[in-house]
Write a protein that binds this DNA or RNA. Structure first.
Length: 196
DNA sequence: CCTTCGATGGGCT
DNA sequence: GCCCATCGAAGGA
């Protein structure tokens, strides 16, 4: 298969819509040790200044959140404890919205993913945001990269049969935001990350 | 400075 | 379900 970056204007749709449409696309990393591809099966939208669960709530602008104020399609990586989490910057410039990529299904590069993840069962390689980054060999060095540029990019995928919508995971202490229906996943997929 | 706290994951009970 | 690794960001003094 020949994977090529999706067009730039794919990232110009409204954030909720983009979060939904990212489910079913491919995420490709042309890693020095081999090609790695997953189909995205779970995302979460973070709606910027209005969303108490977002790092950019209240337009908080710091070294970490700076990239969220940039153009849609940029890569926002950040550290959570010992893990790297991957986001797609969304919304117009200066509207700091983003989409967390939470889970994927291995398509190409199973051997390398297993090596990066250890010997656990395949269903545990990419069923969470930290695991996914590790399986794909993605680190903080991609902060500010663009998701249409090799070697790390989104490519058109097959989509999904049915989309499931629910509340986001792991955002206690964010008031009313805990129940916003901003989590999107492929219904019934065995590698969707845990429910809360 | 100093303290608190994670958009997590793995191990163990 | 509970514990905690491990560290930078955030926010207060």
């Amino acid at each position: 298969m020949n994977f090529q970056p999706i067009s730039t204007n794919f990232f110009q749709q409204p954030t909720i819509q983009l979060a939904q449409n990212l489910v079913g696309q491919y995420l490709v990393h042309q890693h020095p040790d081999g090609l790695l591809v997953v189909k995205i099966i779970e995302t979460e939208a973070y709606m910027g200044s209005e969303d108490r669960a977002a790092h950019s709530f209240g337009n908080r602008r710091t070294k970490r959140t700076e990239v969220m104020f940039g153009e849609p399609g940029l890569v926002y990586t950040y550290q959570m404890h010992t893990h790297t989490l991957m986001n797609v910057v969304s919304g117009p410039i200066c509207k700091p919205e983003a989409i967390l990529i939470r889970a994927g299904e291995p398509i190409v590069g199973h051997e390398l993913m297993q090596q990066f993840r250890g010997t656990t069962a395949m269903k545990n390689w990419t069923n969470g945001p930290g695991k996914l980054s590790k399986a794909l060999g993605v680190t903080m060095s991609f902060y500010g990269h663009h998701w249409t540029e090799k070697p790390l990019f989104i490519a058109p995928g097959p989509g999904v049969k049915e989309l499931e919508i629910g509340p986001r995971v792991g955002i206690q202490n964010t008031g009313e935001a805990v129940d916003y229906p901003y989590r999107f996943s492929e219904k019934g997929h065995p590698m969707v990350s845990k429910y809360r």
